[in-house]
Amino acid sequence: MSPFSSPALPSAAVPSIEHPEDLLEAMLLIRAYELRLSELSAQSGTPGTCTAVGQEAAAVGVLSALRAEDLILTNHRSAGHLLARGADPGRMMAEVMGRRDGYCKGKSGSLHISVRELGVVLTSTIVGGELSLATGVALSQTLLGRPGIVACFFGDGAAGEGIFHESLNLAAVWKLPILYVCENNEWQAFVHRRETMVGERIADRAAPYGIASATVDGNDVEAVRDAARSATAAIRDNGRPFLLELATYRQRGHFEPDDQTYVDAAELAAWKARDPIERMKARLAAKDGFTTGDFAGLQARVAARIDAAAAFAQASPWPDPAELLTDVYA
């Protein structure tokens, strides 16, 4: 409807994750980033984080199916989404550490990192907050005539919030181009999903709102990418929301450090045996003749980036105390 044009929100280059090795490298980067932060938080004064170790295929698979003009909303477990979108691990670590060079000047910490220049437009750590905001972002896309769709990441726990239902219903009624991505990792902080819901699938909740949905193996990065590609194609075609549920598992607990004494060891072991990185590595070896040397090469490249990121973050100064009072009002 709008007579005027508004510039697309992503202004920085968004990397494309094309080849099978790219998918693997992107997952390795996330894994290395999160493990490094876990180590740092165990040793020094670095704050803890919510890691998504074991869920890398979900982030990478979906992000590889998005376009630069698409917008993303995420939550407390966002490192994978941000890194797969092309965020600089150094600036992310600086943010986690509360330093000046963080993406949010250190004011967010790990829990609500947004990167406007990459189209990661609003991050909420109020469980379900991103679901409440995605409809408005999609409304802007539609009314301002911008091309991108909106991807909204949330957990299985968030699907228990009332706002999940309000968001799906409004998106359906207003025909908003939203890819709802539920990372069902079986855990809602310290409560297992089976204690909080009847049935297995969050995706079953889409049909009553007239929303198309799919559930895929969230630990198979190519399956996730393919499902996300067909979901985004449908959204771009008909302008309507889609709910994609990714069945995955949180391997390291809710918030570092977490000894996970409350987790069933057999369940954890079964999911570790389905680790998304190991599976992609094995598939590449079987299909494309990917060697251990190739893998070592990828790992070395990733390790060097994480070393540089940590050094950058640790060298970044603390914010000026005057920053306490800035950025409250426009």
Binding site: S6, L9, L71, L73, V121, L122, G129, L131, S132, L133, A134, T135, G136, V137, A138, L139, S140, Q141, L143, L144, G162, I163, E166, S167, N169, L170, V173
Partner: peptide
């Protein structure tokens, strides 16, 4: 008009405001 759902009415306004409306 909207559904009877003040949370999403307000949230939609917040998301829209952040992105150009």
């Amino acid at each position: 008009n909207t559904p009877l759902a003040e949370g999403i009415i307000a949230g939609t306004a917040v998301g829209a405001a952040a992105t150009g409306l």
